[in-house]
Write a protein that binds this DNA or RNA. Structure first.
Length: 396
RNA sequence: GGGGAGGUGCCGGAGCGGUCAAUCGGGCCCGGCUGUAAACCGGGUGGCCCCAGCGCCUUCGGGGGUUCAAAUCCCUCCCUCCCCA
């Protein structure tokens, strides 16, 4: 295989999954230049969470790293400190330095599970943003119009919904753009919702006399509900730290239509494989994808276990192999025990569960609102997935 | 500066003196069914009580007040949105 064709297949791979590439020709030239490229990606340190929506980006960065390029992770600590009412919420968490540092540490640990440590550099944008002065800010602001910024989806939405929109928020995209100037990014990656911000970075670099960055956007992954983008605030995410069973199970719960998207974005399925996936039974297809993604996050062994667990417990309504065991005294009320063990939040909840038939002892539905435990050993099932084993002894 | 509309449970959004622990939708949970934790259908969704009662306690931005009784009326403070200047 010649050098040229290898190059182009690399380009093909990098281009795959991307929604926008601005400019494609420029990307090609950069890749052909033989230069070690600076790949920028921004992260938000407000919560120590990495979910599989992020993973789409992370995997793309890794592809660049595999070609020898360098990842520049920019931690948006400056905005986190000032408070950013982003998205739907108008709540502005102001994090302390310690919290940000802690969150960043946790986030990066998760990122580095998938990235090449030696080709990853971390920067905090407060390093340069906290010393910026007013004339620089005004200078930056003069590069964009209000309607450009209002064109951003989340801003416009809030405007339309009559939700507060603060002036300082208009600055954030500018600051993010300025980050690109500082680190002299060659390429910036982001979700499709970031396109505007990425392009602003491009413009900003030009006006600072730098070669503009290439902007690459990747699709946003829909969350478990199948509609909204995966995010913490919607609670529709799969964390990379979820238990293998939960990862597997959550994927089994996504709407069928989403299977191919997950397969493509997270398992790197090619067109051909996607077609195959469409042909087989949705349940089989989903199992396959669930297994792959669980494997990606937790390794083969864990994934295999999760697969078996799902079939046994969810599908067959069986009992899992490992159940936590507890010892209680004779005559205790089951519902109270469940509350004490933290299986349910309140006794009322346990009562409701009992009424709706969601509590079982050794496979028998519990009917009594206050069930007295007798001597012996019991497997208690609460709802679909919670199991505990109780050893009831004679009270002294 | 002027005028108007609002702040209700996880979210959206009713209620506007008792019948309100608060309609409804979403989410979530349980059950049924199944091909799955999909879809669909049914139920539930503040807490407490081994007297489960038409029981008790804590909720409708914060504080105070009127009343036998307030999410609902009054006062005050805080917050948001819209229009005009």
């Amino acid at each position: 295989m010649s050098g040229v064709s290898r190059e182009s297949s690399a380009l093909m791979k990098l281009k795959s999954k991307a929604v926008d590439i601005i400019e494609e020709k420029q990307l090609e030239d950069l890749l052909n230049s033989g230069k070690k490229l600076r790949i920028k990606i921004g992260i938000d340190p407000t919560a120590p969470l990495v979910h599989i929506g992020h993973l789409v980006l992370i995997l793309k960065i890794r592809e660049f790293q595999e070609l020898g390029h360098q990842a520049y992770v920019i931690v948006g600590d400056f905005t986190a400190k000032v408070g950013d009412p982003s998205g739907r919420s108008s709540l502005r968490p102001r994090l302390s330095d310690e919290e940000i540092e802690e969150n960043t540490k946790i986030i990066m640990e998760k990122f580095l599970r998938f990235l090449d440590k030696n080709r990853t550099q971390i920067y905090f944008n407060s390093d340069w943003l906290s010393n910026i002065n007013l004339s620089q800010i005004i200078d930056l602001s003069s590069k964009v119009t209000v309607s450009q910024i209002l064109g951003r989806d989340d801003f416009r939405k809030r405007q339309e919904e009559g939700k507060p929109l603060y002036v300082h928020e208009f600055l954030y995209p500018l600051l993010q753009a300025y980050d690109s100037v500082v680190i002299k990014a060659d390429i910036e990656l982001g979700g499709t919702d970031q396109l505007f911000n990425l392009l602003l970075g491009r413009e900003m670099m030009k006006s600072f006399g730098l070669p503009p960055q290439v902007c690459i956007t990747l699709p946003l992954l829909e969350g478990l509900d199948g509609k909204l983008k995966m995010s913490k605030s919607y609670g529709n995410y799969i964390s990379v730290d979820d238990k293998a069973e939960d990862i597997y199970g959550k994927i089994m719960g996504i709407p069928d239509e989403l299977i191919t998207k997950y397969a493509k974005l997270l398992c790197n399925f090619e067109e051909k494989e996607i077609e195959e996936l469409k042909k087989i039974h949705p349940f089989e297809a989903k199992s396959e994808v669930a297994l792959r993604i669980t494997e990606l996050l937790k390794g083969k062994e864990e994934a295999e276990k999760a697969h078996q667990w799902f079939n046994k417990v969810i599908r067959m309504r069986g009992t899992p192999d490992e159940i936590p065991e507890f010892e209680v005294s004779y005559g205790t009320i089951l519902q109270k025990v469940l509350k004490e063990l933290g299986v349910v939040k309140s006794v009322s909840e346990a009562t409701r569960l009992t009424e709706s038939g969601g509590i079982y002892i050794n496979g028998e539905q519990v009917k009594e609102k206050l069930y007295q435990l007798k001597k012996g050993e019991y497997v208690v099932r609460v709802g679909k997935t919670k199991f505990i084993k109780l050893r009831v002894k004679e009270d002294s």
